[in-house]
Design a binder for these strands. Structure first.
Length: 968
RNA sequence: GGGCGUUUAGCUCAGUUGGCUAGAGCGCUUCCCUUACAAGGAAGAAGUCACAGGUUCGAGUCCUGUAACGCCCACCA
């Protein structure tokens, strides 16, 4: 590489070179033997379903900013990378693709072959994802890359499952799943599409077994309203609200279920909506006050069934037809037998017809409601009862003294839910922004047992084997047996510990069959913070880097993922996996819609990197990270140099422009590094611009560090942007140009030092460009700061700067602001009076002895001359008559006349406008100060600031009015 | 239904314990290819801080209510 920077910043080559350089230096590598304080983050493992989108780019940029900041803060850092197998989601995308491309369904494959096909997909996308992360500049320790289904993670899954099983926290229970009768598969909730359907409410009468007297009326039946008459075959109760006036008489009685003849109780349950024909509430409007309860075919009814210990009668076969072979054992009447084998919709019609013919159909009303449909077959899904494995989350942990309940909840302190909740309550776990803590808390407080089995092929197969009959008599190390009473009699379940392949073979030879189901994908992600470190083995990594520090993620998985990581970290390792959770905003498109493939409004990070560069993308993303929950990214089509038309956003221009600015400022700086003095040779300097820029520099270090520590990312980017662009480039470098031309060497050293610090401060956000410039700067000015030390070779591991409070100088900043104000006003006059930019004009200042403005001006005549393009700037301590053709400026009580600018009218207009503004301002402040209560109640510094302001405005106004008088 | 967020310049957004003469980037207007940068420089214009009340010496900021938009969760006999 040459030692001069190219004229235009080209991210492409720089990004590749710099990334290679970091890799060669193993700059991302984490060393468990590193004695320094540790800082660890785990990446939220992206799903291997698809390539990364802009939301990933955002989250991973933020994590990279944090890890780079900590790395420069000289922590022993680890950022653990990896991907998630994402059970249902991945299996579904692969199934879809195979169906579309080959017309084959999953059941056309052997399990192993199908899993191999998913594995291929996973390999492809995992590679893509990791490459994307690297292109973005992520500084993960890649050699530690994990996958939630790799051997290391699988061992942790097995160990956790075994521990839970041993502790009696895993049990077999019934659960209603979303069943697709057409494809005969289970669907996840998000695979169910809700469609509005024009349906009916059928009002059906159920005769009372014994007639009742109610308000003097003879009652022979109750009327239930239902949208699904066919499920009545499985009814096991009729429920009514206990507050219903009729409840006192009717609850406890029985009705005889038509068709089936089953006697079922009338029970009281709060869930039932009281009837109210006038109500806005649809349910109340249609309700009769009596609800048929079918626990096996409706989620709500299932809950009611649980509460009242009702039998669950499944009346359907997996294909959705009426069946007496799946749990319905009182199908004895001819009417009922007649229905067996009918499709559920045929049965609906037949049942309605039966009620009609028996005069039991009281009414039919039209009703539009939403019905869940399978996203695959588009038929209505059937809530279907099945056996599943559960984790008991509120059961007290065994072998631990009972500590009671968490206050105000039914959560035992020593339960899985409890140990996830306590760290939040005692302050060990913190959310930023804080409001998200309540999400976490509410969810855990109302947590229900966690169903962990999934009827899928892609995932961790459940390590349980079963066999009908009683358990073997003798205990075997590595196996836990448990007998359970089921519909089919006693079954023995055996859970096998990890790394006992022999045992597995043995029990299989003995007739035990492994459960075909796999674990919920969140089961393995819950272990991510420690499975990746080798747990259950006590590895050096686990000892050094667990517990970790920060988790950065999106709000939608606070419950599913974050809470479970805390729960499992506490349960398995005995500590929380991180102490801070940062929740970032969701990126939406310009219309506030979620970015998605189907809407075609997604932005591909790699395309942004192609068009703007990775640093530019990162800077823009960081600057958009405010504490709000959504952030909009207006989209624009863009054509890349290679002709691709891609989605992009003008927002990225900001980042790109800043890169360019930094690049060029660095070029300029380095062009002027010849004979650059060392730091000790130039300090202290008394030049106002020097003092000012060093004050601003240190203020910026302080602000940037604070912003990082408090996750105020937009603040961080804004402060750095402002310092680099406005303070350093627009002001300091412009002033330095003239001074350097004048032979001064001090600005060179200050430029070198500022650039050094700017690179350090910007590095976490824009790692590539800063590292590239750093290399050049090291060649040209290796010594450039306090202590006259050689700068570190690599920026990525260089020291994060410390703010020097002594250098922060508010009076100097005030003085400089005044000077800048004067310069701006002169430039303004030049524009308003149409003075050619090249024309130098002369000026004379009417200074007043003792005024601070006078002193500032006198000391900085050369600066003003250079930046305002003045020929001469004379200082007069005597009052001077307003010169003919002059324009006047007043700043801090000092009047400056710009000579021979002629245009009298323009000058009068300008002055009158200023007069107006000042008069208004003075009036405002005067009335404020005239208010006794203000003077009495406001803090002293606020009052005195107002007084100073008034005085200054009055002085300036007087001067302006004098000039106006002289001109007119 | 429960929880939460947003509403500030034409657009996208800042504005941390009330002190604001309300800021930034883009866009807009005028001038400038000045030897770091036209992806640039200089100077500007642009806002009843959604609405209505209240607290306060003082409200974009705190409280109450209203409206619109949006997100998450649950549910829909």
């Amino acid at each position: 590489m040459s030692s001069e920077l190219e004229k235009i910043y080209d991210p492409k080559q720089v990004e590749v070179d710099v990334y290679n350089k970091w890799n060669q230096a193993d700059a991302f590598g984490a060393d468990p033997a590193d004695p320094r304080k540790n800082f660890c983050m785990v990446i939220p493992p992206p799903n291997v379903t698809a390539a990364l989108h802009l939301g990933h780019a955002l989250n991973n940029t933020l994590q990279d900013v944090l890890i780079r900041y900590k790395r420069m803060g000289q922590y022993a850092t680890l950022w653990m990378p990896g991907t998630d197998h994402a059970g249902i989601a991945t299996q579904t995308v692969v199934e879809k693709r195979i169906l579309a491309e080959e017309g084959k369904r999953r059941i056309d494959f052997e399990r192993g072959d199908f899993v191999a096909r998913i594995q291929e997909w996973k390999d492809e996308y995992e590679a893509t994802i990791l490459q994307q992360l690297q292109k973005m500049g992520c500084s993960c320790d890649w050699k530690r890359t994990r996958f939630t289904m790799d051997e290391v993670c699988a061992k942790a899954v097995r160990a956790t499952f075994f521990k839970l099983f041993s502790d009696g926290l895993i049990y077999r229970g019934k659960r209603l799943v979303n069943w697709d009768p057409a494809t005969q598969t289970v669907l996840a909730d998000d695979e169910v599409e809700h469609e509005d359907v024009a349906g009916h409410f059928w009002y059906m009468q159920y005769p009372l077994v014994d007639a009742a007297e109610l308000d003097g009326k003879h009652i022979t039946h109750v009327t239930v309203a239902t949208t699904r008459p066919e499920t009545m075959l499985g009814d096991t109760a009729v429920a009514m609200n206990p507050r219903d006036p009729r409840a006192a008489v009717l609850v406890g009685r029985k009705v005889r279920l038509p068709i089936v003849g089953r006697e079922i109780p009338i029970i009281a349950d709060d869930h039932v909506v009281l009837p109210d024909p006038e109500s806005e509430d649809e349910k109340a409007k249609f309700s009769t006050g009596f609800l048929k309860v079918t626990p096996a075919h409706d989620p709500d009814d299932y809950q009611i069934g649980q509460r009242h210990d009702l039998p669950m009668i499944n009346v359907m076969a997996p294909d959705g037809s009426i069946s007496d072979r799946h749990g319905w054992d009182d199908c004895n009447t001819p009417e009922a037998e007649n229905l067996v084998g009918m499709d559920r919709f045929e049965a609906r019609a037949a049942i309605v017809e039966f009620f009609r013919s028996e005069n039991l159909l009281e009414d039919i009303r039209e009703y539009n409601h939403s019905v869940g449909h399978s996203y695959r077959s588009h038929v209505p899904i059937e809530p279907y009862l099945s056996d599943q494995w559960y984790v008991a989350v509120k059961k007290p942990l065994p072998n631990i003294p009972d500590e009671g309940l968490i206050e105000g909840t039914d959560v035992p302190i020593q339960s899985l839910a409890g140990i996830a909740l306590t760290p939040l309550l005692d302050g060990r776990l913190k959310f930023t922004p804080e409001r998200y803590a309540s999400n976490y808390k509410n969810w855990l407080e109302n947590l229900r047992d966690w169903p962990i089995s999934r009827q899928l092929w892609w995932g961790h197969q459940i390590p349980i084997w079963s066999k009908p009959g009683k358990r073997p008599a003798e205990n075997v190390d590595g196996i836990i047996y448990r007998e359970m009473e089921t519909d089919e009699g006693v079954i023995t379940y055996a859970c096998v510990a990890p790394s006992h392949d022999k045992l597995e073979k043995q029990i299989e030879a003995d007739g035990f069959v492994r459960d075909p189901d796999v674990l919920d994908t969140w089961f393995s992600s819950a272990l991510w913070p420690f499975s990746t470190l080798g747990w259950p083995d006590v590895t050096p990594e686990l000892k050094k880097f667990y517990p970790g520090d920060v988790l950065s993620t999106a709000r939608e998985i606070i419950t599913l993922w974050v809470s479970r990581m805390v729960m499992m970290g506490q349960y398995c390792v005995g500590d929380i996996p991180f102490s801070e959770v940062f929740i970032h905003a969701m990126i939406q498109d310009g219309q506030g819609r979620k970015m998605s493939k189907s809407l075609g409004n997604g932005v591909d990070p790699l395309e942004v990197i192609d068009s703007h560069g990775a640093d530019a993308m990162r800077f823009t993303l960081v600057s958009m990270t405010t504490q709000t929950q959504d952030v909009r990214m207006p989209l624009a089509k863009m054509t890349l140099p290679d002709g691709r038309e891609v989605n992009s956003s003008p927002k990225f221009d900001m980042g790109r422009n800043l890169c360019n600015k930094l690049w060029n400022a660095s070029r300029f700086a380095m062009m002027n590094m010849l004979r650059c003095p060392s730091w000790s040779q130039i300090r202290p300097t008394e030049n106002l611009a020097d003092v000012w820029i060093l004050s601003r520099l240190n203020g910026t270090i302080r602000d940037a560090t604070l912003a990082l520590e408090s996750y105020r990312f937009n603040d961080l980017s804004e402060k750095l942007y402002h310092f680099l662009w406005d303070d350093f480039c627009d002001w300091y470098l412009e002033i330095a140009k003239a001074r350097i031309a004048d032979g001064q060497r001090t600005p060179k050293a200050i430029i070198a030092h500022c650039l050094d610090t700017i690179l350090r401060l910007l590095h976490p956000i824009m790692p590539f460009i800063t590292e590239a410039i750093w290399e050049k700067l090291n060649e040209i000015a290796p010594v450039r700061g306090p202590g006259d030390m050689h700068a570190e070779e690599l920026l990525i591991t260089a020291q994060w700067p410390m703010a020097d409070g002594e250098t922060i100088d508010p009076p100097a900043e005030g003085a400089f602001d005044m000077l800048a104000d004067l310069i701006r006003q002169i430039r303004n006059i030049r524009v308003q009076h149409n003075i050619a930019p090249s024309r130098k004009i002369n000026a004379i200042a009417e200074a007043i002895e003792g005024l601070s403005a006078t002193e500032i001006l006198v000391k900085n005549v050369e600066t003003v001359k250079a930046l305002a393009n003045l020929g001469e700037l004379k200082i007069s301590y005597q009052e001077i008559p307003t010169p003919d053709g002059a324009a006047a400026i007043t700043v801090g009580g000092v009047k400056v006349y710009l000579l021979d600018v002629v245009d009298k009218q323009a000058e009068l207009d300008r002055l009158k406008k200023q007069q107006e503004t000042l008069t208004k301002g003075i009036k405002g402040v005067e009335s404020k100060l005239a208010n006794e209560k203000f003077v009495a109640n406001a803090p002293e510094d606020v009052v005195s600031r107002e007084r100073d302001r008034l005085e200054e405005m009055q002085r300036d106004l007087a001067a302006i009015e004098k000039t106006i008088a002289a001109l007119s």
